[in-house]
Design a protein around this nucleic acid. Structure first.
Lengths: 112, 112
DNA sequence: ACGAAAGGACGATCACCGTCAAACTTCGAT
DNA sequence: ATCGAAGTTTGACGGTGATCGTCCTTTCGT
């Protein structure tokens, strides 16, 4: 095992051109996953999985992050024992304009 | 039974302000329902349920139209033995901007 | 009045997806 | 070297929703 220089292992991320609307809708239809999206949107920097408190167990959380990553919604990379997450804002917005806004907006208390 | 003048029975339609993003995403995540949306979008006038050919049986189709109506996506009214459907374009667009466009756009062969 | 056409209601089935617990892996710190 | 923290993997379970077939209802033609 090459002890290289902290290779910052990166799990596979899809090209957003290869992500289908079906995938994206399936990803965003789950309330827990929208919670994650909302939290990441509010964050200024990368956020570790455990830093977002979710109403589900660890393994389920892992699953949700996985789904979001495969749908091109978030980007993940390791740092130490943590996995940091970010929204793929611009990219995603370009591919599915308006969608993230809808999710974020719906999470806010209606204050018209 | 009052033989009134063809009362054009109308099933209950939700106010779009009462429709949640959750509902809408659940409605649009189904490919068959997106097919319906696409067909209605392409149509110039109201369309009967049977006029859209779907890869499912009659009762299933009825179910899908029901879900779409409850999610505020379509409007339905009877005419004779048929049930006519329309998209609630402006209303829906105002409540969930961009969503219908995403669905319609995704249904078209990628012709960038 | 009858029959056909267009839907709707109902019950059953089936597959999938979210959930959890438990065991395992990695990395950092002591 | 060891321990703990943070995730991951795996397998099992359960609920929900899509689907179908069948039967019922309504309305239009004739």
């Amino acid at each position: 095992m090459p002890r290289a220089q902290q290779a910052e292992r990166v799990p596979p991320h899809p090209d957003l051109a290869d992500v289908t609307l079906q995938q994206v809708l399936e990803a965003l239809v789950d309330p827990v996953r929208r919670l994650i999206v909302t939290a990441l949107h509010a964050a200024e920097t990368d956020v570790a999985c455990g830093a977002i408190d979710l109403p589900v167990g660890k393994s389920t959380a892992t699953h949700h992050f996985h789904v979001l990553r495969e749908a091109g919604v978030i980007r993940q990379h390791y740092r130490g024992t943590s996995r940091l997450n970010t929204l793929r804002r611009e990219e995603f917005e370009a591919a599915f304009p308006g969608l993230l806004d809808l999710v974020v907006r719906a999470s806010q208390p209606r204050a018209d």
